[in-house]
Write a protein that binds this DNA or RNA. Structure first.
Length: 358
DNA sequence: GCCTTCTAGAAGACCACAGTACGAT
DNA sequence: ACATCGTACTGTGGTCTTCTAGAAG
């Protein structure tokens, strides 16, 4: 079962730590798999390829597994609102009895254009009933992927890149762009290079008690990670995810903290023991960097901050919950009884079938 | 130009509760 | 080693309150 509060996208299922890149452009992470072409495609390439002609538009595609991001999704878990490949589905839903009761349905293939197909109800992410919103939902998903592709080979997706306080994605680029313009290029280009090289292998992150960080004299104020937002777990396996109180730990990507320390002070003694060195492939040229910064700037102009629903079941509960002046109110005993009766009635009507969580 | 007041919009807080992980037993 | 229980934590939406930026005097 996916632990709530952790980002299930891009986490674990697969032994690999990289999402598959688009077979066409080789730069953006793929989001769909085209059976006809036997190709993994990013959103833009998918749109381009499958809008080329009528035949191509009929190609059936499926979303890429949200867990491993490396295999075509085979099932849609309605409880988790996640598209999963067979392997990840088996892993996740065999983790415990509750997870095994999740209502899953086979993934329906996508045909036509992802962006304009009005009849298609997105199997991926969260289902929107309003057709006009579907494009927006897809755009947001696309945004996440694209943002992740600006600089990092495979950053953590979703909120983690912000919540962890890492210099990931926007924040990192903000600093980068700022520093490029303020003459600190060298310092941050060093960090940049490390970030570029930074492989988001789960093991690369160390969950360290904040006290340890605070005890380090080299941990500069202003550079410390926002531990109040850093509550996330990442152990490479959904079913084995670790929940850590955000008040107790800071999550420190080794390369980042050591490199920042290098920029402002000496590297902490002994950190190499805590955080072993990482394998860091380097493949981006300055031109690539520039292009990605430009893409980032363009994207920043148009980016959206709309709320994303991660748990549809909670949304459903919240919408049915009684309120007083907008605040959730306690259910009266009568309401509770009615609910009980309704659930009992429904239970009898379907012969005791276990309902999905939404 | 500077200050004060007003206004509109944005952002955050608040609430109850289901679901989950984890430690203790 | 396994099961059970209690605790802590998270996320969800509508409304209200507080904050902030801009306009007007």
């Amino acid at each position: 079962m996916l632990k709530e509060g952790t980002n299930n996208v891009g986490v674990g299922g697969s032994s690999s730590t990289w999402s598959r890149v688009c077979d066409t452009c080789r730069s953006a992470p793929c989001i769909v798999y085209c059976h006809a072409d036997s190709a993994y495609l990013c959103s833009s390439c998918d749109a381009r390829v499958h809008a080329a002609n009528r035949v191509a538009s009929r190609h059936e595609r499926v979303w890429v597994c949200e867990a491993c991001e490396r295999a075509p999704a085979a099932f849609l878990c309605k409880a988790d609102a996640a598209s999963l490949c067979s392997s990840c589905d088996a892993d996740i839903h065999s983790a415990n009895p509750l997870a095994s009761r999740h209502h899953r349905v086979p993934i329906l293939p996508i045909s036509g254009s992802l962006l304009v197909e009005p009849d298609h109800e997105p199997e991926h992410g969260f289902v929107n009933e309003v057709e006009e919103e579907e494009e927006e939902v897809f755009d947001e998903y696309d945004d996440e992927i694209e943002a992740a592709s600006w600089l990092l080979p495979h950053p953590l997706k979703g909120n983690e890149e912000e919540e962890n306080g890492f210099l990931y994605g926007d924040e990192f680029l903000d600093n980068l762009v700022d520093c490029n313009s303020c003459g600190h290029h060298n310092q941050f280009s060093n960090v940049f290079q490390q970030q570029q090289n930074y492989n988001t292998v789960p093991q690369n992150y160390a969950v360290v008690p904040v006290q340890v960080l605070q005890q380090s004299q080299h941990f500069q104020p202003g550079l410390e990670f926002d531990s109040s937002k850093a509550g996330f777990s990442y152990d490479g396996s959904i079913s084995q995810s670790v929940s850590v109180s955000s008040m107790e730990v800071g999550v420190v990507p080794e390369s980042t903290i050591s490199d920042i320390s290098v920029s402002y002070s000496k590297s902490p003694i002994g950190t190499s023991d805590l955080f072993p060195p990482l394998p860091m492939p380097s493949h981006l040229t300055p031109l690539d960097r520039e292009a990605r910064v430009l893409r980032y700037r363009e994207k920043k102009k148009t980016r959206k901050f709309e709320k994303k629903i991660r748990y549809a079941s909670r949304k459903a509960y919240a919408e049915t919950r009684p309120r007083i002046k907008g605040r959730f109110a306690k259910r009266t005993d009568v309401e509770a009884e009615v609910d009980q009766m309704l659930s009992t009635t429904l239970f009898n009507e379907v012969g005791g079938t276990i309902f999905p969580s939404f």
